[in-house]
């Protein structure tokens, strides 16, 4: 067996490199005047954050949720709805419409957290395929609700004329908006790392690997998983709110099951349960989309190949290529 104590440090270096990449890309692009690449880096950061949220449920808890688009979309619609009411000067459900990101994020997290509580309370009584199907069904419910509700654009989606504000920063400019998104990503990653190392994280990882053993110690796996699922949904909703502001547009596609699948792909591609795995996955995904998307419309074919290679060859995802995680046991 290799000495385990030095392995994490290599993992840390690899994680920091992956985290620094979008920042470096944005800084370079900003100095070079290539605002398009700043936006690309912002997309990486936001998708990385969304997948980091999923990584909490999927990576640490082993919960294969095919419903995380619901949280991503709820975050997006909260941002869009608040922004549009703020433009009109009307209120939302009796709450004031303040076009300020901190406020939007709070509402998004609360709304997604409540939805995750209901979804988790029902779906977490099952496991395996049933769990996947129930999470999918919940997300599809929201998807069809968004399509059928003409008040907020229905099928056409809802444009956001002006991005929500952030303490006076000029959020319509690419670099300030990137820095806000990157800050949110760092917050999400820090939260993931702290949770993973905590008592709760120990219980959650035990629930994934052996729920019967955890129960025999007097801890209900259901409660642990439910809390993880809610926190996971809240982080993904935060990313959704940023994503809507980035595109200045929110549509039902953010809620579609393709989105849920994409988030799973990002996590698997990067490394399930690894701190920087989802971000690594998001980076590769966005870069592939950009580079190959310029060459062929069928770039997702190559994404599929990359995913196949990762799943078949490097089972721990990109992060395991950068920093192998010791010997895999069992």
């Amino acid at each position: 067996m290799p000495e385990r104590s030095f392995v994490p440090s290599r993992g840390l270096v690899a994680s920091l490199a992956v985290i620094a990449l979008p920042l470096a890309l944005a800084l370079w692009a900003s100095f070079a005047g290539e605002t398009f690449y700043v936006t690309l880096a912002t997309r990486i950061a936001i998708l990385g954050l969304a997948a980091t949220g999923l990584n909490l449920a999927l990576g640490l808890g082993g919960l294969v949720s095919l419903g995380h688009a619901a949280f991503f979309g709820i975050g997006g619609y909260v941002a869009g709805i608040v922004a549009s009411h703020a433009m009109e000067g009307t209120s939302v459900l009796g709450l004031p419409a303040i076009s300020e990101m901190a406020y939007v994020w709070l509402l998004a997290a609360v709304a997604a957290g409540l939805f995750a509580l209901v979804m988790g309370a029902i779906s977490l009584r099952t496991s395996g395929v049933a769990f996947i199907m129930i999470t999918l069904a919940f997300a599809q419910m929201i998807f069809y609700l968004a399509i059928a509700w003409p008040g907020y654009g229905g099928e056409d989606g809802l444009p956001i004329t002006l991005r929500n504000g952030f303490f006076g920063l000029r959020t319509m400019r690419p670099m300030p908006f990137f820095l806000i998104s990157f800050g949110a990503l760092l917050f999400g990653l820090a939260l993931f790392a702290v949770l993973k190392a905590s008592r709760f994280g120990a219980a959650l990882q035990a629930a994934r690997q052996n729920g019967v053993r955890l129960a025999s110690l007097g801890v209900e796996p259901f409660r642990i998983r439910l809390v993880a699922f809610v926190l996971s949904g809240m982080i993904t909703a935060l990313a959704g709110a940023l994503y809507a502001d980035l595109n200045r547009f929110v549509s039902p596609s953010m809620l579609s099951w393709h989105m849920s699948g994409e988030l799973i792909v990002l996590v698997v591609l990067g490394g399930v349960g690894r701190l920087a795995g989802p971000l690594a996955g998001a980076t590769l995904y966005v870069l592939l989309e950009h580079v190959l998307g310029g060459l062929t419309e069928r770039w997702q074919f190559f994404l599929g190949l990359a995913l196949l290679a990762v799943v078949l060859l490097g089972r721990g995802g990109l992060m395991s290529l950068l920093a192998p995680k010791g010997v895999r046991h069992g």
């Binding site: 702290v194 949770l195 905590s198 709760f200 809390v227």
Partner: peptide
Amino acid sequence: TSFRFLRPV
């Protein structure tokens, strides 16, 4: 104390 979220184990 399984619902403590901050302090590392």
